[in-house]
């Protein structure tokens, strides 16, 4: 049965996807060299900028902790549990939406979710949880449960003219297959757990990007209609992939191809 699925999937994806033996891929030494680049990640500058922005618009770490009703000591672990259902919002929110609300409360016009200032500030806010393990709780209440289910559905739903879903390239059957020199990544905590390493510096874009922004890029390439940042489906996708990456240590900013 598994073999049949693999054949069908590989036929579906034949236009661009070939398996490891058929196409050259990077060596371990090459991969190590790219991994070493994390030491000097240009996104460290952006995260530094984000720290200044948080100070200016949100009262820094203390201001954020107060807004979230936790102590500053509890803040890292609390951030490691995002996205969360928050009563004041009456919905499940990602960290960037919390920052928007806090800016607004402090009398500032919130940064757009897609702005580089928000990416910088959001990356810094998540980096507060660096070293913590992802501890999202999708059973905490019915709202986050629903968000998780919506995210799973969005992940698996085939859309667009090619009839692709996120799952087409990220199911356990095709993980490791090489697509244009890159192995298709395992998105779980057993693999590279992207939920723990985005926001990241995207080398091909020379800029800092967020997880949701990366989803958009992926959708765009696969010819799927792009879902807006901060929408229930997008937050659901983040919830779903964060749950997949649960237990993985957060290390922000990441560095991606």
């Amino acid at each position: 049965m598994k073999g049949t699925i693999k054949i069908v999937l590989s036929l579906t994806l034949l236009w661009s996807l070939s398996f490891a033996s058929e196409q050259f891929s990077m060596s371990d030494a090459d991969r190590e060299m790219y991994a070493e680049m994390l030491e000097d990640n240009p996104a460290d500058i952006m995260v530094g900028n984000g720290s200044e922005l948080l100070e200016e618009y949100c009262g820094g770490d203390a201001g954020l902790a107060e807004f979230l009703n936790v102590s500053e000591d509890e803040l890292p672990a609390y951030i490691a549990g995002f996205p969360r259902y928050l009563k004041d919002f009456k919905q499940v929110v990602a960290l960037d939406q919390v920052l928007q609300a806090l800016m607004s409360k402090n009398g500032h016009k919130p940064f757009a979710l897609k702005s580089s200032d928000m990416f910088d500030m959001g990356a810094y806010a998540k980096s507060i949880a660096n070293g913590e393990k992802i501890q999202i709780d999708v059973d905490a209440n019915k709202h986050i449960k629903e968000s998780y289910e919506l995210g799973k559905l969005t992940f698996e739903q085939k859309r667009g003219s090619r009839g692709l879903s996120c799952l087409s390239c990220h199911s356990s059957q095709v993980i490791g297959s090489v697509l244009r020199t890159q192995p298709l990544p395992d998105l779980s905590a057993k693999g590279n757990a992207p939920a723990a390493t985005w926001p990241a510096y995207r080398m091909t874009k020379s800029s800092l990007r967020t997880l949701q922004r990366r989803f958009q890029g992926c959708m765009n390439n696969a010819l799927l209609a792009v879902i807006p940042l901060g929408s229930p489906e997008m937050v659901g996708l983040e919830v779903y992939l964060t749950q997949e990456a649960k237990g993985f240590e957060i290390a922000i900013p990441g560095l991606k191809r």
Partner: peptide, 25 residues
């Protein structure tokens, strides 16, 4: 322009040879 100088290791002794990185947007 935003830039950053990093010294590694973060803590070092006099006479030590350290790695210096300069990054700039």
């Amino acid at each position: 322009r935003k830039s950053l100088i990093k010294i590694k290791p973060k803590s070092y002794k006099d006479g030590e040879i350290v790695k210096v990185s300069f990054m700039v947007m």
